[in-house]
Computed example of a mutant assay.
Amino acid sequence: MFNWNDLTFFLELARQNRLMPAARRLKVDHTTVSRRIAELEKDLAIKLFDRRPDGFVLTEQGHRLFAIAERIEQEAGEIQEAFGAAPSTPVGRVRVASMEGIGAFFLARIFAEFAEKEPGIVVELVTERHLINLTKREADISISFVPPTGQRLVVRKAGSMRLALFASPDYLARHGTPAKPKDLAKHMFVDYVEDLVSIRAVHWLLDVLEPPAVAFRSTSMHAQQNAVAAGAGIALLPLFSAKANATLVPVLPEEVVVMRDIYVSVHEDLEYMTRIRAVMRYLTHVFQREADFLTRF
């Protein structure tokens, strides 16, 4: 029979990935952490961690135990709350995957706010052009513009965002301001690199038109917006990013309206973990609170 107390050491090392940080949080020597993990692995007859140069990485068996141990930790916290004891503070890392644009222009700001509310949780924001696989544990939570697919995923629509055409004053002074949608055929555009678009819903300019002439392409929405600000052409940009540059001018804002839903997803094995639940609850609140910012000029 294994020692239940060893689960505390296991959870902390899984969250910190290194002996010294785990030991500091547990207020013990790092050799104690190492010994207790070795004893737990011996008692369970499984390998919980791969020891690598960059730290301790959970094995497949380690991931299974981690999910169980966090549920035990959560139940212990509920016992504390039920009988009037102070609930434990959620701690650990939560990896959130999303697209580069919303990550840089929106999520970075709101997660800075979250860090003040929950100092024990460290959010790791991973930005990719493709959808992260939650089933393979590439991240804990996904924020995307299309609902991800996979076994045992909990997918919720958290909100919506609006996109609009924008240009710089310099570009419009040189090329004129379109008065009607048909006038767009005479203009230059900034767009994505077509053969590198992994998610078709992100190639949102195609909702408006097939751009007749493209001055600049990039896989980065941030780079596209900077090119627009420099006068390269017109681009379809989310309001959450365009609002970061007050010099950008909306083009045909009443005639061209493009919307995208925002989905927040998590694997059901992780949904009720204390730190995951804290981030999910916060995201739900923020997308409701920021609805006007995301959808209105």
Rank of each mutant, 00 (worst) to 15 (best):
M1P: 07
W4N: 08
L7D: 01
T8L: 04
F9W: 03
F9H: 05
L11A: 08
E12W: 01
L13A: 02
R15M: 12
R15L: 13
R18S: 14
L19W: 06
L19H: 04
M20R: 10
R24Q: 11
R24A: 11
R24F: 10
R25W: 07
L26K: 09
L26P: 05
K27I: 08
V28W: 02
H30Q: 15
H30R: 10
V33M: 09
R35E: 09
R35W: 07
E39V: 06
E41M: 12
D43W: 03
R51C: 03
R51S: 14
D54V: 11
F56N: 06
L58C: 02
T59H: 01
H63T: 04
R64G: 07
L65C: 08
I68H: 07
I68G: 01
R71I: 10
R71Y: 10
E75Y: 08
A76N: 14
E78Y: 13
I79C: 03
Q80C: 12
E81L: 10
F83I: 15
G84T: 10
A85H: 12
T89V: 12
P90F: 02
P90Q: 05
P90N: 08
A97F: 03
S98E: 01
M99Q: 09
M99S: 12
G101F: 01
A104L: 11
A108W: 03
R109P: 00
I110P: 01
F114K: 02
G120Q: 07
V126H: 11
T127M: 15
N133L: 02
N133G: 04
L134C: 05
K136M: 14
E138D: 14
D140I: 01
S144H: 02
F145E: 08
F145W: 08
P148F: 00
T149I: 06
T149K: 12
Q151Y: 09
V154N: 02
R156D: 08
R156K: 13
K157E: 15
G159Q: 03
M161L: 15
F166I: 05
S168E: 04
Y171I: 12
G176P: 02
G176R: 03
A179L: 11
K182P: 00
L184C: 03
K186G: 04
H187G: 04
H187C: 06
V193P: 04
D195S: 07
D195I: 08
V197Y: 00
S198I: 05
A201M: 15
V202C: 02
V202G: 00
V202P: 00
W204L: 12
L205P: 00
L205N: 07
L205S: 05
V208I: 08
E210N: 05
E210I: 14
P211M: 07
A213N: 14
R217N: 08
S218R: 03
A223T: 15
A223D: 15
Q224M: 14
Q224I: 11
N226I: 12
N226H: 13
A227V: 10
A229C: 07
A230L: 11
G231P: 03
G233H: 06
I234Q: 01
L236W: 04
F240R: 00
N245T: 15
T247K: 13
V249R: 09
E255S: 12
V256Y: 01
V257H: 09
R260W: 05
Y263L: 02
S265P: 01
H267N: 10
D269A: 14
E271P: 00
T274F: 06
R277G: 03
A278Q: 06
M280D: 00
R281I: 00
T284S: 11
Q288P: 01
Q288T: 11
D292R: 10
D292T: 15
F293S: 05
F297G: 09
